[in-house]
Design a protein around this nucleic acid. Structure first.
Lengths: 297, 297
DNA sequence: CCATATTTGTAGTTTAAATACATTTACTTT
DNA sequence: AAAGTAAATGTATTTAAACTACAAATATGG
């Protein structure tokens, strides 16, 4: 049988992902190389062709054939693309904050850690679930967003964005209001419940109440959790495992990006007419602002 | 005079930045190489040593000496580090959303664009201003955060974070409440005003009111703006210039990261005792959650 | 203006990457 | 099931790229 050529999803894509996806289509000894690459990409970076071949226990030309198979012109280019892909992975290496860090160091660490976590969340998103959520939200009569604490912020953010695309929606961040609103939901409505832990009692009650009324529930949490068990669609926004003080910070930012994706996708679906409405609204906002010369008191 | 060795701010740092900073300390012909690198780093990636030397109009060993001077072991490693640095810059290349993009494509584009924008914001932050803001916030009796719309979300987020480090604070997202609160502020208080445009009238009034009462004002906006003119400390959170629908989305995320930095820094300053309080609070939150077995209805 | 030190280039050496070819393994067909 | 064929892998060789030692040229200080 002829060897199948592999093409990445998007050209110039993360080479590590390309390797992972190509894995089953590779020849036996090429796969040995691929496995070593996935196992420790950093090591390949510091390795020469000879070292890489010894490491994978195959001949040098096989390593090169592997590189060609996944779409590179040779070993050199492959290494460059690995370096490219690894960039985000190493941003977080200096992420432990110290009391005597300079401002510059803090900026580097926190931005680095945030970007790395986003990259992690990106690569661990379930596209299937996301697609299902988009479909559901696109058809929804109305949407309610629920969350407490950090997740409450995310709910509010979502509520600000979705109306722009023509979906009536609300956000509830008070436990009493949440239960009331959830109880009133009916078939055709969609409840989006944010909870990083996915274990907060109030949120589980909200999800249950919404379901009992016949509404669909989209659960968003940081890992597999009770919330997801009682949701119609489960979206896991996984962030880097980090037990220190900054975890909630990261998870909310990753969730915000997921909200961006959902709202953008729903917006693209509902489309044309709403783009116009959006422009009109922007104009209204503009009138709230001054021109260039503001008379400062 | 002896040639000065250059050391990057943080080891493993963005090599492009290292080159930029090292520029004045380099030898004349090494500088020619550095200029070419800064001019078009991508080109260096696809070039061989011979090509790079021809491009810069110097000899091959000079190129190598340049690599060594900025802290690499040779040309190869230099190229790898350039690839590393360039990673974020190319994430945003596919960022125009299409109606018929797959979910996977949307995820890639929006995450990519978000990460690139964060990187941009990071490299354009004014550390000096940030340091001044940290100092001010660390000494503050109380802090009030102000914002409308997307910036209101940021204000709420900030308000959730700062109390963890022992600073009493509030967030106002209603124009009437904002003015009332701002008018009541006194010396020793700090007002943090978020406005992406920095031109919203209500926010300018708030900043002015707070100043009139003797409070210090930290203005946070996306570019130079009237708000910053009337603030004691100006923080510009610059995001990628993108006129389409998603700009507010990005700017709020970048602002959230800046809030993270401020709160982390203030937290580190106020330190020890509050770390304990923070743990206590975490424990309280934990009791709000179920254990593993939740009785699903 | 000469002497010394520093910078830059030339030429050669070494090492790594890629190619052509040979061998082995697996698969198909009778 | 066996032989032939095609595909996959390894061996040996070639090519070229990166690095090094040394020499020339330029700049610097007395």
């Amino acid at each position: 049988m002829a060897h199948v050529e592999i093409t990445g999803r998007i050209p110039g894509e993360n080479i590590i992902e390309v390797v992972r996806q190509a894995l089953p289509d590779l020849r036996k000894s090429e796969r040995k190389v691929a496995e070593k690459v996935l196992e420790d990409p950093q090591r390949i970076l510091n390795a020469t062709l000879a070292e890489a071949s010894a490491l994978s226990d195959v001949s040098e030309p096989t390593v090169i054939r592997f590189c060609v198979a996944i779409g590179c012109t040779g070993f050199q280019e492959f290494k460059l693309r690995v370096a490219h892909s690894l960039a985000l992975g190493t941003l977080a290496t200096h992420s432990v904050l110290n009391k005597d860090d300079s401002t510059a160091a803090l900026v580097e660490k926190i931005f680095g850690y945030t970007m790395t976590s986003l990259d992690w969340a990106r690569s661990h998103l379930d596209h299937q679930a996301l697609g299902a959520a988009i479909a559901l939200l696109s058809e929804a009569q109305s949407i309610e967003f629920f969350g407490l604490g950090a997740s409450g912020i995310v709910a509010l953010d979502a509520q600000q964005k979705f109306p722009l695309f023509g979906v009536p929606c609300g956000a509830q961040t008070d436990t009493h209001q949440q239960l009331m609103t959830a109880s009133m939901m009916r078939p055709g409505d969609v409840a989006v419940v944010f909870s990083n832990t996915g274990q907060t009692v109030a949120m589980l009650e909200v999800a249950t109440a919404a379901r009992n009324g016949g509404a669909k529930v989209i659960g968003v949490s940081g890992s597999h959790s009770p919330l997801l068990d009682i949701s119609d669609i489960s979206i896991i926004v996984e962030t880097l495992d980090n037990t220190d003080i900054y975890t909630p910070t990261i998870s909310r930012i990753a969730s915000l990006v997921v909200v961006d994706i959902l709202s953008a996708a729903v917006g693209l679906r509902r489309d044309a007419e709403h783009a116009k409405r959006f422009e009109d609204m922007k104009e209204l906002l503009r009138r709230q602002r001054h021109g260039s010369a503001f008379p400062v008191v």
